[in-house]
Simulated scan of single mutants.
Amino acid sequence: MKWIKYIAVGAVLLYTVLCSILYLFQESLIFRPRQLASDYVFERGEEFFIPTADGVNLNVVAFRKPDARGAILFLHGNRGSNRRSFRQTQALMDASYDLYLMDYRGYGKSGGEIASEAQLYADAQTMYDTLLRHYAEQNIVVAGYSLGTGMASYLAAENNPAHCVLAAPYASITAMKNLWLWMVPDFILKYPLNTVENVARANCPVTVIHGQRDDFIPYDMAEAIKQAAPERVELIPLPNEGHRGAILDPTFARTILRLIE
């Protein structure tokens, strides 16, 4: 019957349009940057910029002490900027390790725009290489929250930090897509950010902190990350916390302080 043919053609067209929209606009769905004015002054810390290989300047805020024993690199979530990271890392600012907050491209006072997974990873590596010029690698701890766990786990796989701490991590962005848009093919994604694979390759111990009431990134993704390398991954469940609670709960800071003290 012709009407069945029309419905089938219409469904295919709608599906094609949906996939095209997701491919073209996935950056605006995944990344939610907040830009800061060029003259914005952070209330604490030392601000500087690091250049990428393609000439983009990334904004960094550091909390350094003369007698620091190492460095903590914090990679934030998909919203906000270094200004939001202040609240999330306050308990680490006076630790015995220096603390570094980095904004991704288009976030805060960083230039450029995010365009690929390879670019995200390369920018994180550029920041890590900057730390290597000042600290012994065995004294560097990498920490990430939500979106930042993909880059943090990548650094753990490609380098040899002392420890990697992941708060509210996803198994992969592909797995996140499949929670709601399972009908969309995986190749549409430019940002698979496979945390499970990164952790399986990690060259250091990994601690995962995840709220069991997280209704955005399910707790079972933390369990999947644990299973990627059971002998190297410590999983700390937070029974009463949701997604944001994983980074705001005192357990996050206490865990890092336990690792460095």
Rank of each mutant, 00 (worst) to 15 (best):
I21N: 02
K2T: 09
V41A: 15
M221Q: 15
E223I: 02
I173K: 00
V142K: 02
A143W: 04
T130M: 02
D103M: 07
P33C: 07
N194C: 10
E43W: 08
T130D: 13
H243Q: 10
A167G: 10
F187S: 12
D249Q: 06
R213Q: 15
Y23K: 15
A71T: 11
A152F: 06
M1V: 07
N139C: 09
A222N: 05
A171W: 01
A228F: 05
F48A: 06
Q125Y: 00
A171R: 07
T195G: 04
L29C: 03
P66E: 15
N159S: 09
Y23N: 11
L189E: 03
Q119P: 08
F49L: 02
L120K: 02
N198L: 01
Y104S: 11
C204F: 04
E241F: 01
P250E: 14
R34P: 01
A246N: 04
T251S: 10
L131Q: 14
E234G: 01
F187G: 03
A246C: 10
G70K: 10
F74G: 01
C164K: 02
M221T: 04
V17Q: 05
N203R: 15
L131R: 13
R232C: 01
D54G: 01
D129K: 13
Y6I: 09
R44K: 14
L22K: 01
M183C: 14
R201A: 14
C19V: 15
L120W: 04
S38M: 12
Y135Q: 08
N82H: 05
E27H: 03
F252R: 08
E27V: 07
L36T: 06
L73P: 07
H134A: 12
P192I: 12
I140R: 05
E261Q: 09
K177T: 03
F42W: 04
P185R: 06
Q212G: 02
V17M: 13
D129N: 13
D215H: 12
Q90A: 11
